[in-house]
Design a protein around this nucleic acid. Sequence first.
DNA 1: TAGATTGTTAATCGATTAACAATC
DNA 2: TAGATTGTTAATCGATTAACAATC
Lengths: 209, 209
Amino acid sequence: MSESKSCIFRLFRYRRCLRDLKELGYVKVFSDNLGEASGVTAAQVRKDFSLFGITGNKKGGYIIDALIDKLNYILGKDEVQKVILVGTGNLGSALLRYKGFNKEDIQISAAFDADPAKQMKSGAIQIYPVKDILDYVKINRIRVAILAVPSVVAQESAEMLIAAGVRGILNFAPVTLKVPEKVIVNNINLAIELENVIYHVSVREKNHR
Amino acid sequence: MSESKSCIFRLFRYRRCLRDLKELGYVKVFSDNLGEASGVTAAQVRKDFSLFGITGNKKGGYIIDALIDKLNYILGKDEVQKVILVGTGNLGSALLRYKGFNKEDIQISAAFDADPAKQMKSGAIQIYPVKDILDYVKINRIRVAILAVPSVVAQESAEMLIAAGVRGILNFAPVTLKVPEKVIVNNINLAIELENVIYHVSVREKNHR
DNA sequence: TAGATTGTTAATCGATTAACAATC
DNA sequence: TAGATTGTTAATCGATTAACAATC
């Protein structure tokens, strides 16, 4: 139980940090090293590991390679994950070219846009008309989509994706999507994220310190 | 007390929903309407409001206009907020053109990049060399920056910003920035956000339902 | 061994939810 | 009035932290 959402999120962060540490030549890591590297407490690291039955060596910390393997097993990292992108406007086209996904073995296998001018104008990834979503998702058994369309069409786009078989959506449109319980939505609202930073900075400024 | 981070975050979401509702012609709203619109429970809405002394009418819900005004007062929305962007690569240049910020009265007043080829090649917003950050931030009293540089230079860029006077950073580089306590960092790791969705979908798929 | 680190339990902390009296 | 909704308190829930015995 208690594989809490934020715990999983941290496991991903640990894995990323471990890879970086490995690249730097480290072989072992202690819970406090890893905690510092990923911005959490040492206790938190050990607790998270404990929840998933990940063990280290009572005195010698954790072997980085073994740890990464275990995280790969838990988080799943056998094959490349295919996702699709809907909406190739401003943000969408940047995501299409974003290298951070490939690095994590995520591949955007196709993109979709309502604007005929954008279709075909592909770089490496083909851009199809929106009406092709249904077939594409079914044929390729796509389960996850990135939604980067204008707010006004976000809900209908989501419904189209879900009808086709998509079960997880990373949503950049600043609206609350209404979806069935079986579908997972992760919202990223860039404006709100930035507003939050601004808010906290100005609050601190007011309390002058 | 207890102006928790997530509570503030929700207040921003409420405001956004309220504006949408207003645009649709609504004048009043009940806690359960607003809850549904923003994806939280009605109790949560009332609790959040109560923490900030926002009151409605015992029977008649909340007047949307008055509510927006109160949120504006709490969250601060008098003048346009100026921020800068560092790194105009793939993601950075998309953020530069992202319209969602302007809509929330946030303005990217300048951008910076290490690549001379990108400098001057401005659209509406001027792109300066990185070495100009210090002066620009000081002269224009910038407090918040968006960091969209490659991971390897993220830490040093952050330090440069902080030295210049920046107190809040929205960080897109997939690294844990080491910053003094006085600085607020909000991390957005696109790959991890997407991996999370993929993970939760595949877990559910395994438990077939 | 002495010192250091894990793994886990218990304590704390905070956030969400439920419930309901107040009241319009 | 009867019904509905707020505002707030108390209960629940979950997540983080602290502490420490186990042990290498």
